[in-house]
Design a protein around this nucleic acid. Structure first.
Lengths: 334, 334
DNA sequence: TTTGTATATGAAAAGGATTACATAGGAGGT
DNA sequence: ACCTCCTATGTAATCCTTTTCATATACAAA
């Protein structure tokens, strides 16, 4: 591996000039610049990253704090972040917290230890205001989920609006007995989707039957979705439509409904949320809200890069459009 | 952030001694060692990674070359690698190749450019012997897939054995008309599983009907699995069991069979491969071969770490046990 | 007492880049 | 002709560790 000094000798200039050609080409005379480029080419020189990072006091590593890569929803976001980081010369350090807040803090300590220049946090709880302490010192972007009243860069869809839209759609199909399966987790998306559900019923002056709100577990497990659905199916007055807060739960709902020998969408309609890959892996294909996960990822990195370049105060809160995708689990009652 | 010099002053020793305490504690006198530890604690000193890397000429980055994080099979492996890398002080640079060999090479050039200390390659083709050129110069581990005759560290399951086992199992259920859906990709796993299928039929002197071997596309898409299955169902003599080379293909098969108004496992049995999450997300639950993906990941890192520590020649080829998991898509004919 | 050896530590070089500061040369103004 | 200013480049300091080599002390052997 050749060094900057080798290049300098080859091009008959000082190392400073070579460095300038690399970092500020416009300030060196064209003639010299070309000579240096030639030398770089000839020696196939690549700057030593560690030396550069040492001098510039940066790591070129972005920390990604995720509950679980294995979840396809997060995986797509990660792909977006990763590709974007790649092209900007950053490597991604993926830290799996498995949902534990203590692990989240441990992850963020990497910032203190200068092992990473900034972080993207994928699933922070609604009440994790402590994140602000980190965000006031280090570049941090929140993706999809965020604590309620903190002033930190973030990117997400408009969960309230999306859920409200789903309700309007279900309502427009003629349904009036609409149930919701929420989750016991502490995400703002969960809160907002449930709130939209309740608000919609209020505005349409539909009685909001407490029993129509069931809860799946905090990781949206298939099994808990199934159980919650079973409770709904055992009600005296079964709902005619179920709005599930996530696709896996909706899949559980579908399984439960089928096992109860009811037909979808004939007897009961189901709507999911997220549009993960397997919603079209078997019939009935799921009607759901599609989240632009890859884009959530790329935008997250863009915002983080903003913080890097324009300072920690250049906060941006970005809302990305969602899309309601109607497939086979919903049908008009008329 | 305090530096090694601050610590040295605080402990009244030279920087060299502090460095020794950190990297070779046993060679410094206990008394001094403790004093240094105290100073480190007091100043909450953390060594500067870039400086260390510069001096030691390493990057502490491992490159992970994967076709697609988004695939749950790879995602679990990644989780394993990531967690392991984490604990060994490495960060993971994930490079998505989207299946292109040219991208694979671009990824591996990161080794040449000294942007990473070694690489784990997740899905190399059977004929990618060029990888040996890299592996002879840099630490490289192949995970799951590998070129046929190269001498490179790798970890995988015994695909031939697993597939043979599946065939024995299907045979033991009484099936004689057994079809296989393979793939047009160029992985050794594909080759070995198909070979096991053929060998088994030969040994049992069952005629190997050419039409019973169909091919799904190279990324095991659901859709192509469905299409391949349709071809099998249109045969004069339908198979009574279908061995699919991957779970998504098996899901496609299930969809196709159901749409043809046939029952699983009553009319046709289906076996998958990999045991990805969604095989139990709806009925019938898939009978399949479970691969220990997370472990494949952790072992891959272990082998890579071996190469780091014991040199590029300390090659190991590790086979990890698989497991045949019988669920609802298979049933005895008797 | 002298010499040799082992142990514990320090001084300083090395690693490869960026950058503050210095300088040389040319253009332009008076 | 002289001064000023700007442009283009060079010199050397700096970032923080690790590590080689040197030194000092203590103890054993001769």
């Amino acid at each position: 591996m050749s060094t900057i000094e080798d290049v300098a000798k080859e091009a008959n200039v000082s190392v400073a000039t070579v460095s300038r050609v690399i970092n500020n080409p416009e300030i060196v005379k064209e003639e010299t610049r070309l000579r240096v480029y030639e030398a770089i080419e000839k020696l196939s020189y690549e700057p030593n990253i560690s030396a550069r990072n040492l001098r510039k006091n940066e790591t070129r590593v972005v920390l990604i704090v995720t509950p679980n890569i294995t979840n396809p929803y997060y995986a797509h976001i990660l792909a977006g972040i990763g590709d974007m980081a790649q092209t900007h010369g950053y490597s991604a350090l993926i830290y799996n917290t498995y949902g534990k807040e203590s692990e989240q803090k441990k992850a963020l300590d990497m910032l203190k230890k200068k092992r990473s220049d900034g972080a993207i946090i994928l699933a922070s709880n609604m009440d994790s205001n402590w994140i602000e302490d980190y965000a006031s010192e280090y570049p941090i972007v929140l993706c999809s989920e965020y604590p309620m009243d903190v002033d930190i860069s973030r990117v997400s869809i408009d969960n309230y609006d999306a859920a409200y839209n789903v309700m309007q759609y279900i309502y427009s199909l003629g349904h009036r007995k609409i149930a919701m399966i929420s989750s016991t987790n502490n995400y703002i998306s969960t809160y907002l989707r449930l709130k939209a559900y309740q608000d919609f019923l209020n505005i349409e002056t539909i009685e909001c039957n407490e029993e129509y709100i069931q809860y799946a577990d905090e990781v949206y497990s298939f099994k808990s979705g199934k159980e919650a659905t079973l409770k709904l199916l055992n009600l005296k007055e079964k709902p005619s439509a179920i709005f599930c807060i996530s696709d896996t739960i909706a899949l559980g709902a579908i399984a439960a409904i089928k096992e109860s020998n009811l037909d979808i969408p004939q007897d009961i309609c189901v709507v999911g949320f997220d549009d993960v890959d397997y919603t079209t892996m078997f019939h009935p294909y799921l009607t759901t809200v599609s989240q632009p996960c890859y884009k959530l990822g790329t935008e997250s990195f863009r915002l983080l890069n903003n913080l890097f370049k324009n300072g920690i105060k250049s906060i941006e809160k970005r809302i990305i459009p969602y899309e309601l995708i109607v497939r086979e689990t919903t049908k008009s009652l008329f």
